[in-house]
Amino acid sequence: MEKIRVLLVEDDEYWKNNISDDLGKEDDISLAGVVSTKEDALSALQSIEVDIILMDINLTANNLDGIEIARELKRTGGSSSKIIMLTSLHQKEIVMQSFKQGAVNFITKSSYQDIIRAIREAYYNRSAIHPDAAEMLRTEIILSDLTPMEREIYDLKQQGYNKTQISELLYKSVNTIKSQLRSIRDKLRG
């Protein structure tokens, strides 16, 4: 049986140990390597073949190194490996950047019990977007129909601003804001 070769890119010892142990228990998965830095990950990918990269997003402080690695691999075509982002972060911008840079899935560490299934799904090109990211992606797809101005107004409304406050912030009349909110509602209803 051919094994799924996984490179774990993780700097936290707790997660390195636990994920390595979990992967080691699977008959169809082989841990091809464990690295802790962006440089080590890029170097490893030049010397070993891997099918799946299980990538922590923050390797040093809050630098989003995992997204940088994915961006570099995408830019250079340096790897055909599929990337699954694994992180404690769940901000919309980080989820979106992960997928834009080539990740096939995004799992928060609080859902780490789903990693094995996600690895198999990615390997067999059947990646279902994990619930940690799915709702956010669906929302962003729907919101992509908004113009930049409508999106700005939508975001302000989501942050709790009322029509008057939005009009003051954007230097527009309240009637203009009302009109744009109506347009936003119409677009979001489909």
Rank of each mutant, 00 (worst) to 15 (best):
E135C: 06
I48G: 08
L137W: 11
I19K: 00
G102W: 10
T76C: 03
Q97Y: 00
Y161N: 10
I4W: 02
L73C: 11
G24T: 09
I184W: 05
E13W: 02
Y124I: 07
I48H: 10
M96V: 09
N58Y: 04
L86Y: 05
Y171S: 15
L181H: 10
I129V: 15
S47M: 06
Y161V: 03
E26A: 11
Y14G: 07
I184K: 02
S47G: 04
E26M: 07
A133N: 07
A103V: 12
L169D: 08
L64R: 09
R189P: 01
M85Q: 08
F99I: 08
Q165E: 15
Q46R: 15
K178R: 14
D65P: 05
A128N: 08
L42M: 13
L64E: 08
F106D: 02
E13K: 13
S144C: 08
A61N: 07
E39D: 02
D12E: 14
I94L: 03
I116F: 00
E68G: 06
G77A: 02
E26D: 04
E72Y: 11
T147E: 10
M96W: 06
L188S: 02
V50I: 01
E135D: 15
N63P: 00
A70K: 04
A32R: 02
K157Q: 12
K38G: 09
I29V: 15
N63V: 04
N125A: 08
E168C: 04
I184D: 07
E140C: 05
